[in-house]
Every structure is written in C-alpha cells, then in structure tokens.
Amino acid sequence: MTQPITQTPICQTIVHDHHPDDTVTLTYDDRFLRRKVLTSDSGTQFTVDLEQTTSLNNGDAFVLPDGRKIGVRPAPEALLEITGQDLVRLAWHIGNRHMPCQVEPTRLLIQRDHVIRDMLGKLGATLREVDEPFTPEGGAYGHGRTHSHAH
C-alpha cells in the first residue's frame, strides 16, 4: 500500500512578531531566500515561497496558512571580532571591500576571512575568533544586503 504524499504548508507572508509560536534558526546566508523548505526548531517543516528574494532579520516571522507564526532567529556562526584604537578606520576598510559587517560601539564583527584578517592585522586591529549570531548592517538605506562585485 502506498503512503499518501503530504505537502508542507506554504508560507508566502512575513510579518514582524516578537512572540511567535515557534522559531527557525538560520545563518546570515540562509536568511537571504526566496523559495526554500525549512524546518523549525521544534520540527515543523514548511515551504517558503516569496515573490522576491528577501533578507530576513531577527524578529521577522513566517505566517503559515493556519495562522501560526514561525520567528526567525540568527544562528551562531564563525565570526571575527575586531577591536582597536580606530574602529572607524577599520570599518571603512571592511566596507571598502564590500564585507557585511555588524557594527557595535566597541567592536565590529565579520564572517571569518583569512585575507581580510591579514589586512586588518596589518592595520593594527585586535582580532579574536568568536561564534555568535551575525546581524550585519543593512544597505545604504537601512535594508538589503551588501554584495561582492561578482553578483
């Protein structure tokens, strides 16, 4: 006897919600999507099918057809913490290389990259490998993604 084919619920709506019914933990790269099957942290599988590729942030939530909301949480990932006497200058060099960067008052965070690490070390930065959620700055108008020249 064959088993019936079950389809995952299809989500086409995103809202902002700080009290979702469930969560899905995604890396920075995985939070940039249009169509993908995801599994929530409690095991609910659902299909995301958005009109356009979207950059998701902490606090965004997928709305399932039954009304449940699955919130987006940034996953810990391998990052490079940057501190130093002149964070503004270091941030400029990172931005000049189109690297996504999380800007905080006393430090910067970027995805680990040995070439950028070497450059920042030569510029006098103090560098430390960390594993943390990554939520870099958006584009010039507060949203979007920074892309390499290969996009």
Score class of each variant (00 low, 15 high):
43 G>Q: 10
115 V>H: 11
13 T>K: 14
126 T>D: 10
68 R>P: 01
12 Q>W: 05
81 E>Q: 15
84 G>N: 04
120 L>D: 00
86 D>I: 11
75 A>R: 15
83 T>G: 14
96 N>C: 04
115 V>G: 09
54 T>W: 03
28 Y>E: 02
33 L>P: 13
141 Y>W: 14
67 G>V: 03
74 P>H: 07
94 I>T: 02
20 P>C: 08
145 R>T: 02
57 N>T: 02
85 Q>V: 05
85 Q>P: 07
48 V>S: 06
29 D>A: 15
41 D>V: 10
86 D>Y: 09
66 D>R: 03
120 L>W: 00
20 P>G: 04
120 L>R: 00
87 L>Y: 09
149 H>S: 15
150 A>Y: 13
107 R>H: 11
107 R>F: 02
33 L>G: 13
104 E>M: 15
150 A>T: 11
123 L>M: 10
142 G>A: 03
139 G>T: 08
25 T>V: 09
130 V>Q: 04
47 T>Y: 06
45 Q>V: 12
83 T>R: 15
42 S>D: 05
47 T>Q: 11
23 T>F: 12
106 T>F: 07
121 G>P: 07
60 D>N: 13
129 E>I: 14
68 R>A: 03
58 N>I: 13
122 K>I: 01
52 Q>I: 08
71 G>W: 00
68 R>N: 03
15 V>H: 11
145 R>M: 05
139 G>P: 03
3 Q>S: 08
106 T>K: 15
121 G>A: 13
48 V>H: 01
150 A>Q: 12
128 R>K: 14
108 L>M: 10
147 H>R: 12
81 E>S: 14
16 H>F: 03
142 G>C: 05
63 V>E: 06
7 Q>W: 08
26 L>A: 07
137 E>I: 04
144 G>A: 03
71 G>L: 02
22 D>C: 09
89 R>T: 12
14 I>V: 15
129 E>R: 10
39 T>G: 09
22 D>N: 08
18 H>C: 01
81 E>C: 14
63 V>N: 03
58 N>P: 06
47 T>V: 11
65 P>K: 09
30 D>E: 15
126 T>A: 12
98 H>T: 05
22 D>A: 10
90 L>T: 01
79 L>Y: 02
138 G>Y: 00
